[in-house]
Design a protein around this nucleic acid. Structure first.
Lengths: 207, 207
DNA sequence: AAAAAATATTGAACGCGTTCATTTTTTGAG
DNA sequence: CTCAAAAAATGAACGCGTTCAATATTTTTT
């Protein structure tokens, strides 16, 4: 009979997570009170805190899901053969941006980023940072793949350029979520413009 | 005598600002309570809120001072003649980083950045973003100056490259303030490595 | 100078995330 | 089945940023 406790626990975990994501989407992260989440999940406030370290930790589940999916999609893009630098980059980056609002609103992204900067020692921040690094590495991998195919000059340091480009992608994403007016297409266009000179200079063909 | 009110006001403003910055430096931003700041300034909590919109707004004064100074120093660097791209970039960026901890601690930077992302509609965030854009523009100006001198290829889009490089500088600075272990020299070295390929490709001489 | 209007100060109260001592439920041994 | 120990649930209480109705002070009007 010893599965009872574990089963209840799993059930509550799921109910709380469901309630939280529902409320975050409905009223926004800030306006969703722990009390409301707990009530919707049918537990007390104290129980919420037995299951999650704090409110911010609830976001991480969603952020993780988002980024894991986009990483998988990115791998598929890298695996294909590309004959030009700029279009390959645009495709990968475009995938990041297109997918970004699938599970998270701009407000939720702002909160997640804000938390990861404000409290870098928390598990939340560390997981967030780790996901960022995997994305950065993926851009490096794309450049390297292009170099292997002879599309990118042999002497280029792929990691250096990849990190540079990704950091720009990331910073522009911050600008994007800070501005409710800005849409994904505008974002993609701006980043493509910023990438263009580097993409061009990296090419052998542009010689 | 109608100057009485204005004089009292200016005096209180100064006292509150002084108390806040003193406490921020002494015990950190989070641990400095409004109650303590108010007490040290010899006013009530309510009065604090008559002078400042909120706690975060107090940071902006310090951030502004910091960035204004660094912008002035940057202009002086750009005004000089540079014969190579990488060293010129390193000097400007190095100045940004070297100056960054003059008035603000890493924790204060984290708080400022975090606030500017979390609440983009506040005056705080808007002023912060404006300062960022001026810094970004300064990097663009440096590239343009190098291009005018014939050090950078004529066909390069200076704004595109400048924004790209600055966004990397900024993102790396976020990593820097998130990591209490990291020192300025390590930061500068990493950014120089990331810049190197782009700097090299931009050069005419590397042809 | 007194009264009225304008402006500034105040601190108790509020909202909400978080904690923790107490109570309730579950478990396994005898 | 009984009961003591372990685990989980609970909600009142706390901390701190922020608000606001009441009070005090300064300026203007007469």
């Amino acid at each position: 009979m010893s599965g009872l406790r574990a089963q209840k626990k799993a059930d509550k975990n799921r109910r709380i997570l469901e309630a939280a994501t529902t409320l975050f989407r409905k009223v926004g992260y800030d306006s969703a009170r722990i009390e409301d989440i707990a009530e919707m999940a049918g537990v007390s406030v104290g129980t919420f805190y037995n299951y999650f370290k704090n409110k911010g930790d609830m976001l991480m589940a969603t952020v993780s899901m988002e980024v894991e999916e986009v990483l998988a999609a990115g791998d598929a893009i890298i695996a294909r053969d590309h004959d030009e630098v700029a279009p390959a980059l645009s495709e990968l980056i475009g995938k990041y941006y297109d997918h970004s609002l699938t599970y998270l609103s701009k407000e939720m992204w702002r909160t997640a980023m804000s938390l990861s900067i404000a409290q870098p020692e928390t598990p939340f921040s560390k997981r967030y940072t780790a996901l960022d690094h995997r994305l950065s590495k993926q851009v490096c991998d794309l450049i390297r793949a292009l170099q292997k195919r002879g599309v990118v000059r042999r002497e280029v340091d792929c990691d250096a350029v990849g990190e540079l480009l990704f950091n720009n992608v990331n910073m522009m994403f911050i600008e994007f979520v800070k501005d409710e007016e800005m849409d994904v297409d505008g974002l993609k266009a701006e980043v493509a413009r910023q990438n263009a000179p580097v993409a061009r200079l990296m090419c052998l063909t542009a010689e």
